[in-house]
Design a protein around this nucleic acid. Sequence first.
DNA 1: CCTGCGATTGAAGACTTCTTCAATTCCCGA
DNA 2: TCGGGAATTGAAGAAGTCTTCAATCGCAGG
Lengths: 111, 111
Amino acid sequence: MQVPLYQAKAEFFRMLGHPVRIRVLELLQNGPVPVRDLLNEIDIEPSNLSQQLAVLRRSGIVVSIRDGNTVSYALAGGDVAELLRAARRILTELLVGQTELLAELRQADVG
Amino acid sequence: MQVPLYQAKAEFFRMLGHPVRIRVLELLQNGPVPVRDLLNEIDIEPSNLSQQLAVLRRSGIVVSIRDGNTVSYALAGGDVAELLRAARRILTELLVGQTELLAELRQADVG
DNA sequence: CCTGCGATTGAAGACTTCTTCAATTCCCGA
DNA sequence: TCGGGAATTGAAGAAGTCTTCAATCGCAGG
């Protein structure tokens, strides 16, 4: 392997590290979606969406399918859902942790 | 929720998007590890490691524990292992996809 | 108290990534 | 073949992240 695995992983996570890209992946989870519909959901300029779609395409996690005048995107394979679920689980813990911390800080204010 | 969830997720993934941070999380999976040992494994300047550890700490995914003169880091909670496994599964698919693509390109060269 | 080691911090410049713009491609229908 | 809508591209400035440096903190031992 030319590229060390931990670097490939880091690149992979960086690819996920953008709100629009996350939303797109979530929207694609029930099958292909036309760019037009993504634009409807996401409230962003078309060219910006295209840029983000290009990032996803380059990584290989999605593919684009042209049908006449409309282009649709679809997940390339695998269990993206599972990844996002795992992320949500951890994220939930982290946010709970922060809430508790916040509560303690408030206590400290009062006490 | 003040911060939309998809933005929190994006920040979370961005936090993971660095080779050193990934390695640290992997090294912490069997329990706390002193900074000294991390430095031994990772080949990076101490101050750089500290910066990356600070990123992890700020996100809440790890905590630091001081014992006399040595500081150790530990996972704050949850199933980071599962997340990394899910990531590896997808990553493997993606890399296989790229390898196949490469093979096709070579075919095209010959044919 | 002072020295030294382990680790952290803040700041600055190099480097990446984001957003936006104008220009372009692709395809359909007239 | 021309017009027009859908989507993409390339480029440029703004914004963010990385690496490194010197300075600092905290603690143990002399």
